[in-house]
Write a protein that binds this DNA or RNA. Sequence first.
DNA 1: ATAAGAAGGACCC
DNA 2: ATCCAGGGTCCTTCTGCT
Length: 629
Amino acid sequence: MPAEDGLKRSQETESLVKRLAGPSSGKAGLAKDQSEINRIITEASKGSKFYDNEKKKDKEVTVRIEKILKERDESLKTADIRKIESSVDQLIAELEVQRDLTQIIVHVDMDAFYANVELLDNPKLHGKPFAVGKGVLSTASYEARFIAKKLCPDLIFLPNRFSRYLEMSKKIMDIFHRYDPDMCPAGCDEGYLNITPYCEEHSMAAEDCVREMRETVFRETQLTVSAGIAPNKMLAKICSDKNKPNGQFQLEFKPEAIKAFMHDLSIRKVPGIGRVNERMLDAIGIKTCGDIYQQRAVVTLMDKRFGLVFLCRTYLGIASNVVQPHEREERKSIGAERTFSTLDSKEKIFEKLTEVSVELEKDMEETGWVGRTVTLKFKLDTYQVFTRAKSIDHWVSKKEELFAIGKELLLPEFPLKIRLIGLRVTKLKDLRAKDDPTNGIKRFFQSSKENEPRKKAKLEDDADLHDVMEDAMPGFHEHDETDYQVDDNDGDDIVEITNMDKDVTRSRPPHSTSNAQASSSKLESVPARARSTSAAPRLRGDKGKSILTSIKASTQECPICSKVLEIDNDSLNAHIDFCLSRSAIMEAQVETNKLVKKPYVGWPRQEFSRKVDTKPPSSRGRQPSKRGR
DNA sequence: ATAAGAAGGACCC
DNA sequence: ATCCAGGGTCCTTCTGCT
């Protein structure tokens, strides 16, 4: 079915509303949920460049998907599916052999951290809906506020108090450290632990240990924490969501149980799979981790795009189980940025740039870094983001210089209307490096067991890197030779797997002719599948970390209308969706318009320019660069 | 021709 | 009647040098 004409306007509208809410769905935390709701409301109320931008991005993904499908169908023509499948089966078997169930990994995750800290400090808030933070919402436009009020008359706004959260965070992390001195914090409200030694020393069952730990946290801070217990970080993380809030979940440490667990798990739950990859995988028939197996041939044919090994490991529920604190020298960049109401005068913009420079200098000084390349980032009023970078022949960190470089980078871009400006410096040097150069190497020596020198070095290095990474999850896109396999310690048979996987894979020409065609006409329209992403989960009330203090037990309170409902999470979600639905907002909008008298420039004007014109629109005339192509 | 830089994204908390 | 998500990492693709 051709193009947008085929879509009903209202239908698309609704799907987009959901899409706006969507990204936060599966896994986001409080801030995210909150900001998504904020966005829905604000953007709805102001006609929304944001919305247009989302629409555009959405469409780009759709186009990408078309390309992928074509590619798939092309390679499917000549492929020997059976053969591919059996080689994948072999890969899976080899991965299975590497499975390590010896480590007890815990992911701990504070429940609605900010909100609960506020609640703690002000018990009167109990039972009332409130939003933490100067989100868009609390400082939003009059109309937006009005709508918000309309949708949720009792909503209370609280300012963020970061230092307070940090203080609590320290206490909590301190408790976690008692159970694993090498625990790895992941943000201020969550972390990974390896409690294997602790359990052993205290001859304790994991579940008891974790329960005790959670009780300790509660006793000492009055805050609740949820936890997942599993043989690796990925599983632990997914599990910590299972009985949230204030609950824990342990996965059975058996391959069959783990595979069963993965089988029906939405692929979106996997750390590293975001909105875009969710859609792309959906396009090739993968919605759950179990689907990976069904589609293993296709995945193999498109290894470059999707990462066969990663997906196979995901299917099996295998991932890194290495928990280490991160170390200072792993820092890659440091930056600062500001969002503001859109600005177009040079003076004002440079003022913002000054602010950012000052802040960055301060930050760099406090943390002891200097760097060699400075990247300017700006976001147009259309929400398009650009970056411009410059490398310097000496170490920079001073605000004057940061500003000067930023200015130099920005100047050629005028005229501009921007809503964000930021600076980031990379190629860092650590002023506090104690033992000098060859920093990162020492860990390499520790863990390496001098195997075959050839590429082992790189492999191990990579693995190491990924392990320690703060966001520790394996990257989604992988090279075939970089499959940082078993960051676990046992892996040695890796190389073979790698090779084999290459073999299978090589059906595709080495380098992309794809770009060429990308630029060609391609004026075909969006296929019927435009409305994709059928059943993505939306705002999850059960995430606890939602906009307000959610309630627990059998009754839940809708974050939007505050209505108390006696239902399960799914129904609650449905209700929330309803509350956020277009009609609700539009209704409020109508009211608003009456009072504010401002035309409703609302949602979708259907008609999208045929050729997306990757060029940045806005600021007429010349654009931030062109690099499209 | 190749390694390195630049730009743009995806994703995470 | 309006104006603040910000801090990161990694990956891919393209390009202009020596």
